[in-house]
């Protein structure tokens, strides 16, 4: 089976067959073993053994690699081809939904529906852990929807503001 693994913005083509793997076409002798009683898996390579904690989530894997925690997406070859044909999996038309990255309370809104925003401009201030965090727009455009009011308590992942790209 052939997989495309995207991790920290870098994509690798990895083919797994029996005890052999090919990474970007190069043969690698590798084995992965779960370490009993832990969430760790040991990757054995000719150069040494590295432990990773791998946890599956909705759309991929969370990878604890030493001090870093990365997010990895995996698609098999068939799915990837299908996506290329249908154009799926891509953000449509420069539209951004700004979501609460953590549970918190909306302190204030800095825009309203129709506001013109620059990239990086503050949209909403969210208080969490007693700190005020300003959430900014990743794109330049116009605010198309505001879903919350000042003072509202929001759960992680709640869509707060939507911005559509202009031009």
């Amino acid at each position: 089976m052939k997989y495309t693994v995207t991790i920290q913005g870098r994509a690798f083509e990895i083919e797994v067959r029996g005890g052999e793997a090919r990474v970007d076409g190069q043969v690698v002798h590798a084995a992965l073993h779960a370490i009993p009683g832990t969430p760790l898996r040991a990757l054995t390579l000719p150069t040494g053994v590295t432990a990773y904690a791998l946890a599956r989530h909705d759309v991929g894997w969370t990878v604890h690699a030493g001090a870093d925690v990365w997010d990895a997406r995996v698609v098999d070859e068939r799915t990837r081809r299908l996506q290329e044909v249908t154009g799926g999996g891509r953000a449509g038309g420069g539209h951004v939904a700004v979501k609460a990255p953590m549970p918190g309370r909306v302190v204030r809104l800095e825009v309203e529906v129709g506001s013109q925003v620059r990239q990086g401009q503050g949209l909403v201030v969210l208080e969490a852990m007693k700190m005020e965090n300003e959430l900014t727009s990743g794109i330049a455009g116009r605010v198309t929807a505001v879903h919350v009011q000042a003072g509202a308590a929001v759960a992680k992942g709640t869509v707060l503001v939507e911005v559509a790209a202009e031009g």
């Binding site: 997989y3 870098r10 690798f12 990895i14 797994v16 990757l43 791998l54 990878v63 990895a72 995996v74």
Partner: peptide
Amino acid sequence: PPAEVALRHAALAVALAEH
């Protein structure tokens, strides 16, 4: 970005786990 080799190995571990 993290070192290429670190990402490569982590990606390999993910592919093997997925498989």
